[in-house]
């Protein structure tokens, strides 16, 4: 028993010594040989463990760069939003240049400075004044259509009321020139606050939704043919002496920063804004055909779509 124990202890000692010697040998091996041994181990026994370590370090890297990535993403989103605004502004400027080319003369390009103070949201300061030929009642337009008109001029700037102003009024007509009325701001509930009304339309005339409304040139405010909006629906009240239509404006003033002020010499501008009557007619026909389709569908019997045996 004692001999067996001694023998086991001797084996342990020899094994330990062998391991220590092997370790020391590994330490003093030439660099190339050590690299070779280590490489062989890495490619065989240790490969799965190295794979695990790589994954773990990637995960740690992902944790570390997460905040940086989030910050970069936020910056990109912000820049993208700014780019979108610039793109819209660019498109508007291009359209304005196109409008200027079509007008040829009789206008002044200017900036519209919005005044966000309480009670001033319905007027803008236009950076063109009497020195540039702007006079009271000069019309302010954007590429899409009418915005307002000038109510006061200085040498270098003017003040214009927007179509949202309670005093705003312009003589208007349907784009085909058959129906006339007066455009005024609509003071309805919140959802309809930024709409217009076409008032004073004779009862014998009627307009379908989608018909384009333009300035008629009557009343010496706006030249004929400037787009104002499109008809949404008839809002005539009971007992009224004339029809009133709700009109969706062509331009939302808050979106506009660059405008054109039309000088008094401006005449008929129908040809400046493209496809006037045709467009109106197309929309009117589209609207009427839709109405007809709807009406026909409503009057059809419920079982008309069933297959008959």
């Amino acid at each position: 028993m004692a001999r067996a124990t001694r023998s086991s202890a001797r084996v342990d000692t020899v094994t330990l010594a062998a391991c220590v010697v092997a370790s020391l040998l590994c330490l003093i091996l030439p660099s190339g040989t050590r690299q070779m041994f280590a490489g062989n181990l890495r490619q065989t026994f240790i490969a799965p463990l190295i794979s695990l370590q790589v994954q773990a370090e990637r995960a740690r890297g992902a944790f570390i760069v997460r905040d940086i990535t989030a910050a970069r993403l936020d910056s990109l989103v912000l820049k993208n939003a700014e780019l979108h605004d610039m793109e819209l502004e660019n498109m508007r400027l291009r359209a304005l240049i196109g409008l200027g080319a079509r007008l040829r003369s009789g206008f002044v390009a200017a900036e519209a400075l919005h005044r966000p103070e309480f009670g001033e949201a319905q007027t803008v300061v236009v950076t063109a004044g009497s020195r540039a030929g702007v006079v009271e009642r000069s019309v302010v337009v954007a590429p899409e259509g009418l915005i307002g008109y000038v109510i006061g001029t200085g040498e270098a700037t003017s003040t214009a009321i927007l179509w949202t102003h309670p005093d705003f009024a312009v003589s208007a007509m349907s784009a085909d020139g058959n129906v006339f009325g007066i455009i005024k701001p609509h003071f309805g509930p919140d959802v309809e606050r930024f709409m217009l009304e076409l008032r004073g339309v004779a009862f014998r005339d009627s307009l379908l939704p989608g018909v384009e409304i333009r300035s008629s040139g009557r009343g010496s405010v706006a030249p004929r043919g400037i787009p104002i909006g499109t008809v949404v629906k008839d809002i005539t009240t009971a007992g009224a002496y004339a029809r009133t239509y709700l009109v969706r404006p062509m331009v939302m003033p808050a979106d506009v920063t660059v405008v054109m002020v039309l000088l008094p010499a401006s005449g008929n501008l129908e040809s400046v804004w493209k496809a006037p009557a045709a467009d109106s007619l197309r929309k009117a026909i589209g609207g009427s055909s839709d109405s007809l389709t709807r009406a026909r569908r409503d009057t059809m019997p419920g079982d008309s779509t069933r297959r008959r045996p």
């Binding site: 391991c19 220590v20 041994f37």
Partner: peptide
């Protein structure tokens, strides 16, 4: 047993060393 423990330690140490060839051993 100490001998087996020494062998186990040696093998485990070599595993660790394979990732640091400059201090291999």
């Amino acid at each position: 047993r100490p001998g087996v423990a020494a062998l186990l330690g040696f093998a485990t140490g070599l595993i660790a060393d394979s990732l640091t060839p400059l201090s291999f051993g």
